[in-house]
Amino acid sequence: MASKRSAASGGQMRGGLAEVTRFITGDTTEFDDPDLAGAHLGRLLDQRPQRMLLVLDDVWEDEQLAPFLHGGRHCARLRAPETVKPGMWAPARRPAHTTEALLVSLGR
């Protein structure tokens, strides 16, 4: 039986990337490879002049996170699982510290 923390299949990752891309940009291009889909999303994010925060929930494995890290020079990412691996940035649990950490990461 697969645990909640097991890495998503390639199909689930591609579907998630396609959904995020459509929601943010309206682009409906689909890819068979999660890395290609992530690179495409990154290129589209690079075209956006405004800052944005991309919250990635239920991302348990680095394999799930990697496609979302391409491009997006004005895009901060927040990984939001219950448990964070050493070396992965995560906000403090208290709301005031979380807000402060997010504003710092967005350059404010």
Rank of each mutant, 00 (worst) to 15 (best):
R77Q: 02
R94Q: 12
M52Y: 02
L106F: 00
A37K: 14
D32A: 15
R14K: 14
R79E: 05
R48S: 05
A80D: 11
D33K: 15
V104T: 09
F23W: 05
S105M: 12
G26F: 08
A18T: 06
A76R: 08
W60E: 03
S9G: 11
H97I: 00
D46Q: 11
P49Y: 09
W89G: 05
T98D: 00
A92P: 08
G11M: 04
L41V: 05
A96E: 15
P91Y: 06
L69P: 09
D35Q: 14
S3Y: 04
M13E: 11
L78E: 10
P49E: 13
R22E: 05
L44E: 07
A18V: 04
L41R: 10
A80V: 07
S6L: 02
A66D: 07
P81H: 12
G107H: 07
T98C: 08
A101M: 05
P95A: 03
S6E: 02
A76S: 04
W89Q: 04
T21F: 03
D27W: 10
S105Q: 13
G87A: 12
T21G: 03
A18L: 01
F23T: 12
E63N: 11
A2M: 04
A80W: 08
V59P: 07
V59N: 02
T99Q: 11
W60Y: 02
F68V: 04
L78S: 05
P67Y: 12
D58Q: 14
A2R: 09
D62E: 08
H70V: 02
L41S: 02
M88C: 07
A80Q: 12
L102G: 12
T29H: 11
L53H: 01
R108N: 06
H70F: 08
L56I: 03
P86G: 07
R93Y: 06
A80P: 06
P67I: 08
W60D: 01
M13R: 05
L102M: 14
P49S: 14
P91E: 01
V104D: 11
C75N: 07
Q12P: 00
S105C: 07
L36R: 15
Q47P: 11
T83R: 11
T29Y: 09
L103C: 14
R43A: 07
F23A: 13
L44Q: 13
G10R: 10
S3I: 00
P86Q: 14
A76G: 05
